[in-house]
């Protein structure tokens, strides 16, 4: 990238970050997430189940926010016709804007981890068994900040590749629907659920006779985080690939490498860590 392009990217990134930070939907997500931080966590499930809040309020709404910013960027470019700043630079500026929701997710993560450390789960609660602080930190990181990053990236991807106005809404519905199915409630899907960009690693899934019994699902949240980070990187590459004027071959080669890394990471997320679904030996109540 030339010095002029790098300088422009820096300015454009700041512009897009400002637009993201001021977007009403993003602000709504921040308010909702902050309000939920003042709600005492469920004594049995702890703060680990709070991750749904930033994932939805910042991550899912982020799909709409960044799709909107992407469309606006395209509209302005169309109004100006041909400009020296390449689409790839404009896309990377939008990607930089995703650091705003990611930063909000990181702030939530810091709060959540501190809260987790200060509110130990009861023996019949979640988590239990052979998991420590690292496991909890990884779960919170994957379900919180990474979701806050991934949703907005998906928004840019949809905005770049689809001109349909309903595309962001359909994407959000699709993400929520598949995550609901793959959250671990269905036993046959528990090992492969980590292919999803958002899932649970345990909870009150229940057993016969005790529908709220706490379970710990198989898999490694740390490797799942690596996998989701790879998905985010693939999203960025797919976004910049949309620019037909810039060289695409290096991007495709990089995408192949990241794709291979993602495949390895998701395999490790399935087959390392907690070996199989564990059932809390104590009844839920």
């Amino acid at each position: 990238m030339s010095p002029a392009a790098a300088s422009t990217l820096s300015v454009l990134a700041r512009v897009e970050m400002g637009r993201c930070a001021r977007h009403p939907l993003f602000l709504t997500g921040i308010v909702v997430t902050t309000l939920f931080c003042f709600v005492d966590p469920d004594p049995q499930l702890g703060v680990l189940f709070h991750a749904i809040v930033p994932a939805t309020a910042i991550g899912v709404l982020g799909i709409f926010v960044l799709a909107s910013l992407t469309r606006r960027s395209q509209t302005i470019h169309a109004a100006a016709g041909a400009v020296p700043v390449a689409e790839r630079t404009r896309s990377l500026a939008l990607v930089a804007a995703c650091l705003v929701p990611f930063a909000a997710g990181l702030a939530w993560w810091a709060w959540a981890f501190i809260t987790y450390r200060n509110h130990a789960a009861p023996p019949n609660g979640f988590p239990f068994g052979p998991v420590g602080d690292g496991w909890a930190a990884a779960v919170l990181f994957g379900e919180g900040p990474l979701a806050c990053l991934g949703g907005p990236l998906l928004g840019i991807l949809v905005g770049r590749w689809s001109g349909a106005r309903a595309a962001p809404a359909l994407t959000a519905v699709g993400v929520i629907a598949t995550c609901l199915v793959m959250q671990g409630l269905f036993e046959p899907l528990r090992r492969i659920r980590v292919v999803m960009p958002w899932t649970y690693f345990g909870g009150p899934a229940g057993i016969p006779g005790d529908p709220n019994r706490i379970l710990l699902y198989s898999g490694s949240p740390a490797w799942w985080c690596v996998y989701v980070a790879c998905l985010c990187a693939l999203a960025v590459l797919a976004i910049v690939l949309h620019d037909r004027e810039s060289p695409r071959r290096p991007v495709l080669m990089l995408a192949a490498g990241v794709g291979a890394a993602a495949a390895v990471a998701v395999g490790l997320a399935m087959w390392t860590g907690v070996d199989h679904t564990l059932v809390n030996p104590l009844p839920s109540s």
Partner: peptide
């Protein structure tokens, strides 16, 4: 939704007015 000024300001960035 943009103002005339902010629209032109954005285009100016696209024209490398940093």
């Amino acid at each position: 939704a943009m103002t005339a000024f902010s629209f032109l300001d954005y285009v100016a960035v696209l024209k490398e007015w940093t």
